[in-house]
């Protein structure tokens, strides 16, 4: 079985004025389909940069990122947008929903960009999956934080992506809501979706099956958790 994500000697340098900031260097990583991975590390450790690269939002300075056997370096911006649309679902710490659109419209958006027919019904099904079908007509500001994040997850999974990239998804939530989000991720993972979760909380990372620790732009450890044996 070929790997979902293969990262070889990946590095990223930002130019901030005259100073070159090295955000990521010599990262080698392989993630297989169906994995549930946590990336942990303090702020500035390069975990967000890594996620941006894995999410095709950014291009690496050096090294190769091979997503589903395609080297991302060879793709043009439109093709990258298509990958983000079809193969990757994003969940952000600050939810990032469109404030003026209803929950349903937010979930529908990736389908519209992907020009997929019957978008309304598919979007409603995704909302059902996160248990928010009855809140479909509400706008983000009429929803609680936990509900907003569940709408964001519904939006991430609506196109049946291969990977879900979640950047501190529980960071803005209380523990009850955080728990709910993690439960949904678990269910999705059980259905075979690859989930990569960025966090700085050890307890949350422990709920995944594999923990990758980052520090100063480098990977410092890669260890399976107790739950790894479950699958």
């Amino acid at each position: 079985m070929s790997s979902m994500i293969k990262i070889e000697n990946l590095g990223k340098t930002y130019n901030q004025g005259s100073i070159e900031v090295c955000a990521l260097k010599e990262v080698n990583l392989e993630i297989n389909p169906g994995e549930f991975v946590a990336i942990i590390g303090p702020s500035g450790s390069g975990k967000s940069t890594l996620m941006n690269l894995m999410g095709c939002l950014d291009q690496p300075t050096v090294g190769d990122y091979i997503l589903e056997n395609v080297n991302v370096k060879t793709l043009d911006p439109n093709k990258l947008a298509e990958i983000r649309n079809r193969r990757i679902g994003f969940v952000f710490q600050s939810f990032n929903l469109l404030p003026r659109a209803t929950a349903l419209e937010n979930v529908e958006l990736p389908l519209l960009y992907g020009r997929i027919p019957n978008s309304r019904e598919i979007a409603l099904k995704a909302l059902e999956k996160v248990g928010l079908a009855e809140r479909a007509k509400h706008r983000p500001n009429e929803l609680s934080g936990g509900e907003r994040q569940r709408v964001a997850i519904a939006r991430a999974i609506v196109n049946n992506p291969a990977i879900i990239l979640a950047d501190e998804p529980t960071g803005n939530l209380d523990s009850t809501n955080g728990e709910e989000i993690l439960r949904i991720f678990n269910d999705l993972n059980a259905e075979g979706v690859t989930i990569i979760l960025i966090t700085h909380e050890k307890e949350i990372a422990d709920r995944t099956k594999r923990i990758i620790a980052m520090k100063d732009g480098k990977m410092v450890s890669d260890t399976p958790t107790n739950r790894a044996s479950e699958c």
Partner: peptide, 16 residues
């Protein structure tokens, strides 16, 4: 700006 970022992240192309 943020809305544009969201749209791009979920797959909006430049042309769109």
């Amino acid at each position: 700006t943020r809305e544009i970022g969201i749209r791009k992240a979920i797959g909006a192309k430049k042309r769109e």
